[in-house]
Structure formats: C-alpha cells, structure tokens
Design a protein around this nucleic acid. Sequence first.
DNA 1: GTGATTGCAAATCTTTTGCACTAAA
DNA 2: TTTAGTGCAAAAGATTTGCAATCAC
Lengths: 137, 137
Amino acid sequence: MQRPYKDIIQRLQAVGLRPTRQRLALAKLLFEKGNRHISAEQLHAEAQSEKMPVSLATVYNSLHQFTAAGLLREVVVDAGRSYFDTNVEPHHHFYFEESGHLEDIDRDQLRLEAVPDAPEGMAVSRIDVIIRVNRSQ
Amino acid sequence: MQRPYKDIIQRLQAVGLRPTRQRLALAKLLFEKGNRHISAEQLHAEAQSEKMPVSLATVYNSLHQFTAAGLLREVVVDAGRSYFDTNVEPHHHFYFEESGHLEDIDRDQLRLEAVPDAPEGMAVSRIDVIIRVNRSQ
DNA sequence: GTGATTGCAAATCTTTTGCACTAAA
DNA sequence: TTTAGTGCAAAAGATTTGCAATCAC
C-alpha cells in the first residue's frame, strides 16, 4: 500500500490510457481492495471521502474507459443503475434483490449445459447468469 | 380478433385488476400478438398509433401492475431501459447488442448444471440467463 | 506546445409522483 | 356512491454532453 502507483500506472499504460491523477485515484480504489461491484455514484462518494476528489462526469468517463479496455465489466441487474465488476474473468452472480448487493459465482460452480448456437451470423460476446435471491417468502 | 374483449376482461379480473378502457387496450396490444418484448415507450407509441391513446404514466402503471400480477416479466439487459416480456414461463434470452432486440431461448434448449445453493437464509426468486450476441468481429 | 483529459453545469432520458378529475362497481 | 384508476405536468434519478480550462507527454 505504501508502494507507489507504479503497478497501476503500468496497468493503465498497457491499455493505452494516460495515468492521470484522477484515473490513478479511481483505479486505486477499484483494484486494490479485491473484487468489487460498485456503481458510479458509490465510487464517486468513496473518492470524495478518501480525499481524492474527482468529478462525477470523470467517474463515468473513467468507468467506461476502463470497461472498454477490459479492466472492468459492466453488470446490469436493475433498470436504471449499472454496477462495475472488477472481476473480468468469466463468472456469474447472485443478486440480492432487497439490498441490491452482488456476489460472484465462480464459473465452475455453475456450468451451462447445451448452450444453443448463436443466431445466424451472430457471435456470442458474453453469457450472463444472474441468480436473483431474496429473504425467504 | 373480431371477438370482443371477453377473454382479456376475464384475464384481468382473474388477477384482481379492473378492466378499464386503458388496461384493455394495452392488454390487447401485449397479449394478442404472440410473445413480445417491449419497452414502455414502445408500447405507448403503439397505443397512440392504434388510436388507443393512453398516457405514458398509465402505461408504466399498467406494465408494473401486470408484472406484479404475473402477466408479464420484466427483463433488464440494458442500463436505463426495461423490457417487458409477455412470456412468463421460465426461459432465457438472446440479446442482440447492436439492435437491442431480445429473442427467447426455450428453457430446455439451455439447461443449468449444478446450480449452487442460495446463500444462507436466501431463496432463489429467479434465474436469468442472457446470451449477448453481436454481428461477428 | 499540442492533443488528451477534466470539471462544471446544463441537457437528456427513463421512470416516478402528486393530485385533481373520471370512471368502474 | 365510493373507491380505484387516469392524465397531466412536475420531479426525480442516472447518465451524457458541450466546452473552456488544465494537464501529460
């Protein structure tokens, strides 16, 4: 943690993004705390409280740039709110309906059997499995 | 089609919804054209052009009431836009990323193997599988 | 220097809400 | 009648955009 931003700087440069102060701050929050599922709003709030002020617009820009670069994956579970997942390996999710919380399901804890062919002329870009759970009935 | 609204009226009454003019119009558009995946905005536009004017607020209200009553299922694939599916049987979806189009995958065309247990104290409410496809690379 | 990046505020888009009016039972 | 339902216009969220100021290289 005392280590400087060397790793992060290289990581950003590797995908062609200039390591600006804002991107470094956000990348630090995102990637140095294990796997996270975070919304733009949450990340923005976290940056403020960690004394690394970044504007909300820049948070959105960075999240999308990181996603395009393959450093993040966007997970959509809820109309009108995106989560960004720092785990970009193929895997699935539990979604806690009441709290909005997400939890990873390892790819080999849940396998798909007999996946149908993609429609004519189409290529599969990703398969998302979301298991929605709630507190009993 | 010439048949009056008898079936739809009964269907609405069966789930405790008064068969108002607006709900009848929307239910007719939704349920008499086979399986559909439609957004509120689309349904609203369709109602206007079919000379069955319904306000957008009422379209949203009705879609949510129909969903709560089990006549529709909400599908979230895209941040900031909900689709409503008239097929309420368990099944999955192809999602065409460029066009935003959805296509059903029959439940037995794609089975899940070794679904993990729900977390402690949680019950599974639904499992969604979305296969995202796009036009080659 | 020069082009990429940022921040702000305004704009956009989807969805929800408050409330007076209307219609179903 | 009586209560549920509707429409409008305004409000609320989330996200995007335009553009001048700033920063990385």
